[in-house]
């Protein structure tokens, strides 16, 4: 059974059609990359799955739980890493981790172990009691990334995962994403860094002006790009 079912989804903003009958599915443990130029509709797909963007038509379900019918149960199965961190200036890094831990029902010990491991890996273990405004942009991105990596969910959405991260952190994140996928989490990501995505993703979905124009294995995409370049 597919983890994510995205069926015949149409999204309009005002008079403009942003997504036109887009359909795809995501199998358990797969990493799928959304590829396309700016304005192709990649972020709209993410926002629609998250429920931020109203859809005009179509249906979205995760593990057969429909977004429109049971949004509370549906939400429990997603974690999201946004392109721009949206941390609260009223909470410290650790308090953010606690917020995510509690929201996803992690017990205290499990949370502390994960926080210790991930903050050490991303080298922010000395910033736990800092507020976001006293952290650099990269560090804020790391805090946001850790927040989303804490829970074990069915679907992980990542918008531009490597944006704002240094080379070591980006490598670590790539490894963590692969580990997540191996443990059964399906991952949908968008990125402009094609070389990284080629190594990371199993499949790709290519969007153009709100339409899904091509999809397939990442290997065939590599051949395609090489052929085009040659």
């Amino acid at each position: 059974m597919d983890t994510l079912q995205f069926q015949d989804v149409c999204v309009n903003i005002g008079e403009n059609t942003i997504l036109k009958d887009v359909s795809f599915s995501l199998g358990k443990g797969y990493i799928v990359a959304l590829i396309g130029h700016n304005g192709a509709g990649k972020s709209t797909i993410m926002k629609t799955i998250m429920g931020w963007q109203e859809k005009r038509d179509g249906s979205i379900s995760i593990n057969s739980i429909n977004q429109d019918e049971s949004f509370l149960a549906y939400k429990k199965q997603i974690a999201y890493i946004p392109e721009e961190p949206f941390l609260l200036s009223e909470l410290t890094a650790m308090q953010h981790f606690q917020l995510y831990g509690q929201s996803y029902g992690l017990d205290e010990q499990e949370l502390m172990e994960k926080v210790e491991h991930l903050t050490k890996l991303f080298e922010i273990n000395d910033k736990l009691n800092e507020y976001p405004e006293s952290l650099s942009k990269g560090m804020r991105q790391k805090v946001q990334t850790i927040c989303a990596l804490l829970p074990e969910v069915a679907l992980l959405l990542i918008d531009e995962p490597f944006m704002g991260l240094d080379i070591h952190a980006a490598n670590d994140l790539e490894r963590l994403i692969k580990n997540k996928a191996n443990s059964g989490t399906s991952i949908l990501l968008t990125s402009h860094q094609l070389e990284r995505v080629e190594d990371l993703a199993d499949k790709y979905l290519m969007l153009h002006k709100g339409e899904l124009i091509e999809h397939g294995d990442m290997k065939s995409f590599e051949k395609l790009t090489r052929r085009t370049t040659e």
């Binding site: 009223e90 410290t92 606690q98 917020l99």
Partner: peptide
């Protein structure tokens, strides 16, 4: 700046509502 008492299930959300 101290972490919240984690066992207290509403305390984090109280802060969110305050904000």
């Amino acid at each position: 700046k101290r972490p919240f008492p984690y066992q207290h299930d509403t305390i984090i959300y109280r802060k969110l509502w305050k904000v």
